[in-house]
Design a protein around this nucleic acid. Structure first.
Lengths: 228, 228
DNA sequence: CTGCCTAAGTGGTAAGGCCATCGTTCCTTT
DNA sequence: AAAGGAACGATGGCCTTACCACTTAGGCAG
């Protein structure tokens, strides 16, 4: 499948970038820890600052570090959302099938609902109801959509699976980036109502019902997005 | 240059890199096509060559382009192996994410089984049985593991969702890359047996049972991987 | 103590130069 | 004429110097 790239990867910046990866592993740097300054790294590795910078850019674009102007470069080894985003970009470039994204979202949320019913934690339910209340109160469409995303995001948190959460976030972000259509009051009421029904069903531990409503809910927003 | 910032995407090199991505999309550049020379891009975008280079490095490390010394930068929109490698690196960095991967695999396969039972297509079942037969016959451990992957891959195909299939492939590749342990005959028999039970349950449209066996099956391979 | 302000540290950007590599052209040699 | 090789131009690789922009912390004035 992959012929082990025997291509010459001699270029200094790549070597430096690999060295930095190694450095992070060896020093066991965890998320949040700071890397030495560019000028310092340049001295350490005996290369110009330019090379250090190109290497850092490389690491940054794969999400291994984040660079903050005036502060420094910080390790980030447990949030793979940056790279997942690039993966999404690739996937979009080749086979842009929104359906499949929505299906992924669907199975993830199904898993979340099952998890909540199983674990019987009330925390998430409380938070979900909280969000629903806020949705009812706001009249700002933008805020409303934010709450909507927050609701589904909160749902996913129940799985306690960061990967699921990141995937969901990316998908949500993607769709909110391509759809700028406005919801009228009726649509908003419908959304709130469905959210509420889901929470109710979950509370009663009625898995069948909860999943059924979820399906309809997502089916609806699917149409909504595709029509756009 | 138009800094359409909303967050802190101030940095020129990021803007340039985004512009280049946009450039590739707008010009509909396909794999293999060449980008303008660095010095030329610098003039076009009215920035220094340093910025262009940093942006190119960025794109290169996400696999969107490949840079060849003395030749130029070439678009690469269908080979995502580079970015997959980074993703694998990420997961290897924190093994505790393995669980999350296995869970993702689980929900995807659950979806597949439900789909097969619903659609009642016999093609997939035939193919699955075919693979099982081959698993029984082979004595080569390596082949056996390949068939194992093929089985699960074939299962996913039932969803007719390329995204699901790709995700599954990625996960499978990850685990086969970190686990080189050998299976003894008993373990292999168990694996084959479980596969068979799953197919049987699906044939009888017994969703509950099929999902239950799948769960145990994955639970088992999970232990198997973690012990390693 | 509060608040402003400066200075040091750090990343961001620029300009210019030279080296290394690849492809092409064209000339030499056989 | 064909094969080989030398030269050139285009392009990426790398370095140096210099300066700008942002952030934080520490000192000074109120």
């Amino acid at each position: 499948m992959k012929p082990i790239e025997e291509k010459e990867r001699y270029t200094l910046s790549k070597i430096v970038s690999d060295n930095l990866r190694q450095y992070i592993i060896e020093k066991k740097l965890k998320t949040g820890e700071k890397l030495p300054a560019e000028r310092e790294l340049a001295k350490m590795m005996e290369v110009s600052r330019v090379m250090i910078r190109e290497a850092l850019r490389s690491l940054e674009s794969t999400g291994i570090i984040v660079i903050r102007h005036g502060e420094g470069a910080f390790v980030n080894t447990n949030d793979s959302s940056v790279i997942l985003n690039h993966l999404l970009y690739f996937w979009k470039l080749n086979n842009d099938k929104m359906n499949e994204l929505l299906e992924l979202r669907h199975v993830l949320e199904k898993a979340a609902i099952e998890q909540i019913i199983l674990s019987a934690k009330v925390d998430h339910l409380k938070e979900l109801e909280n969000i629903i209340d806020r949705m009812k109160e706001t009249s700002d469409t933008k805020k409303f959509q934010e709450y909507d995303i927050e609701f589904h995001s909160c749902l996913i948190k129940a799985t306690e699976n960061d990967l699921f959460a990141q995937l969901t976030d990316i998908i949500a972000e993607y769709f909110s980036s391509i759809s700028h259509s406005q919801m009228d009051q009726a649509e908003r009421n419908k959304t709130v109502n469905e959210h509420q029904l889901i929470v109710e069903a979950v509370k009663q531990k009625n898995k069948q019902l909860a999943l059924q409503i979820l399906k309809e809910h997502l089916e609806y927003s699917k149409k909504y997005i595709l029509i756009k």
